[in-house]
Design a binder for these strands. Structure first.
Lengths: 402, 402
DNA sequence: AGAATTAATTTTGTTTGTCAATTAAATGGC
DNA sequence: GCCATTTAATTGACAAACAAAATTAATTCT
């Protein structure tokens, strides 16, 4: 019971350092409410462990001050190196990230198929990871862990995938399978959850304790952060925003059910609508066919316009429902640059705000965070860092016990 | 920092006693992980404060045991008496509850109007409360606090009502207003949240850490319990399940918006549908008119049947969305006996289970808990007990500091 | 009656954290 | 250039909380 107190304090201080980026001990004491003496003790442990380092103070009011200059503490990037992997539709994205959250390498590779067997995925991943490491002159031995993000229903605590659009089989203990192939600890979670982790650690979510991340790519995903922690549900299949129903007996969804939000706003849904409306956009690459449709809508094609508007209205309805249910401080819409601008448009957000329960308080902030392709892999890497930090903290506890 | 540790431990032990009903110190130590020594210390404080008492052990394996007999501890009902008040459509329900959760008095009174001014409500409440106390030979001086539950959007932390169907004005500091009238501490929250508190303390929710309560009366409400704590959202207007949208440009709702779940499943919605379908059920009391409609549906009237079925399907869709978003361990459907059987029907629940993301794990349990009228007031009373327990624990902390 | 058993309390020691004093490292005034 | 002043960080003394072990308490079995 007393031990746990110390572990909590260590966590608190490490998190505070991460949030601040760099911060002097005295400010740590003030912001965490832990006494200066304890901050000294704990930071000494973290320094000794190599998780943090002292850096010259970036004290902007330094001129106006006398007295002993403060020494800032920061996460020590060299403490650990992790890889974050995102398994996308037909691609594998990898980033290498140091313990301070800096991306030190990246790599993307086409996958032979959109669905693979777990063992095949593990082998492909190993090769891709080798190339990624080679490019930076690094090797597996430099890695502390691998974070793995994939669409689908994942029980993160067990690293178990109930179902994923990227796998040919259901019910795969994916963390164990990939870990056996790589010889490294592997931590798997739903990809949208991992984006939420990244937003919480290094994105705009860092300033909030309760927010929701909605991701948009082929499907619609969600990550929920409540009280500063990722909420995953009890079986690992919560936060399935894309498969909440928005229409009784509605449009057919990839998941086999009807009326899912995803079946109205995903690009494949819009293309399906366009086709049945008689619109044709000849295009070599099916992945990009959404572009001409959006252009046509902007240019005043009534049919195209109607399809895009309808998607926006359904999306707004979904967002409003989230706000009505969670009343979060913030909603972050995370998606690829440009491709989903029609869903991030101000009139869609205004529509959402209009559809929530109205009280005399400002509605939650909604902001869109358009990251590139590597957002997903970055989320996976951040998750791995979080796990590695846990491991290091446990190591300190074990050393103190001995 | 060390003080807070003790406060946590005291809370843990008090909660464990409440959950168990009655429990020996040694089992407290085992279930909480706190050492026997500390349990002795803390329970001695709680005994001295009068919050708990020793009772003869109800040890069912007593015969098979030798040794010193265990002494059970239980909440001491006489420690505090609170009142729980539910402001309903045209009625005020009050229960008196002792600190152990036992209901020691109840009273219901018709309200002159379905909407009242806050000060008028406070005065009416005072008179009704006086009658309630009189009936048990008690007085205001015997009460420690009052819990107040009402429909609408409530910021519980401030006891502030943004909007309620029971009040004529918006933005009322209702706790302060009623407290000034009664001369007692008053704690206000949304009524569905309070039902969730009751389920967590004394209902089937006691065995779970993550569950959702859906309440059905005139409107549809929701209370969310995550990690053993009620989740209220950041502005106090979360959990508005009844006003999540289930249909774009849908049916008009009381709240002024369109397509709300409530506008499809509440009794007024069903009656509206029946009327526009040409069904007429002459009935003196408008509140009860739903009965004949349901009977007609059961008896094979096709129009009535269709209206009721449609409500069930919409409700199932809403439940499925909740499960897809939260993945809770349990959903409790709380409503008045009989009146909402059509929504609690097994085919509705089966429909909901079919509409969630399918994985090879059993879906969350869904159970209906048909309490009477007093469920609501009981929830408010339970909330008041929780607050009073907080106050008592703080008192112990203050005494120790002095 | 005494041994055995189980519960509860007390004693003792460790951990943790705070407070206050001290040391460290700078600036500013003379 | 030296010393007072200021601010940061560390150290030492002490108190609170908890756990482990010893002790006391209350019972059953033989």
């Amino acid at each position: 019971m007393a031990k746990e107190q110390r572990e909590r304090s260590r966590r608190t201080i490490l998190d505070a350092i991460r949030r601040a980026g760099r911060v002097a001990r005295i400010d740590l004491a003030r912001s965490t409410g832990i006494s200066q003496a304890t901050v000294t003790t704990i930071t000494a442990e973290l320094l000794h462990q190599g998780m943090i380092c002292e850096v010259a103070s970036a004290d902007d009011q330094r001129d106006a001050r006398r007295g002993r200059p403060r020494v800032d503490l920061a996460l020590r990037g060299a403490a650990h190196l992790v890889a974050g992997v995102k398994v996308a539709n037909r691609a594998l994205s990898i980033v290498l990230m140091d313990f301070a959250g800096k991306i030190v390498g990246e790599y993307t590779e086409r996958l032979p198929a959109s669905r693979l067997a777990a063992t095949g995925l593990a082998r492909t991943l190993k090769q891709a990871l080798e190339r990624t490491l080679d490019a930076s002159g690094l090797s597996f031995a430099d890695l502390s862990a691998v974070g793995l993000g994939m669409a689908g229903v994942v029980d993160a605590s067990r690293g178990f995938v109930y179902w994923s659009p990227s796998l040919t089989e259901r019910n795969q203990p994916i963390s164990a399978i990939v870990s056996a192939e790589l010889g490294l600890p592997v931590f798997t979670d739903n990809d949208a959850n991992l984006v939420a982790v990244a937003e919480m650690y290094f994105g705009p979510g860092a300033a909030y304790r309760d927010f929701i991340v909605v991701t948009i790519e082929a499907g619609v995903g969600m990550g929920i952060v409540l009280d500063g922690k990722l909420y995953r549900g009890t079986r690992g299949c919560g936060a399935e925003f894309g498969h909440t129903k928005v229409q009784l007996d509605g449009a057919k969804c990839r998941c086999g059910q009807r009326g899912c939000l995803e079946a109205y706003v995903a690009d494949y849904a819009l293309l399906r609508e366009a086709e049945s409306a008689g619109l044709v956009f000849p295009q070599a690459d099916a992945d990009k066919a959404i572009g001409p449709l959006l252009t046509a809508a902007r240019d005043g094609n009534a049919k195209a316009r109607h399809i895009v508007d309808h998607a926006g209205r359904i999306f707004a309805m979904g967002l409003a429902n989230l706000i009505n249910i969670f009343d979060p401080q913030l909603i972050i819409l995370a998606g690829e640059r440009m491709q989903f601008d029609h869903l991030f448009a101000e009139d869609v957000l205004a529509d959402a705000r209009r559809s929530i329960v109205q009280i005399d308080q400002p509605p939650p902030e909604i902001l869109s965070h358009k990251w590139g392709d590597l957002m997903w892999a970055g989320g996976a890497a951040t998750y791995a860092i979080d796990k590695v930090a846990d491991m290091s903290l446990r190591e300190i506890a074990a050393q103190n016990a001995a």
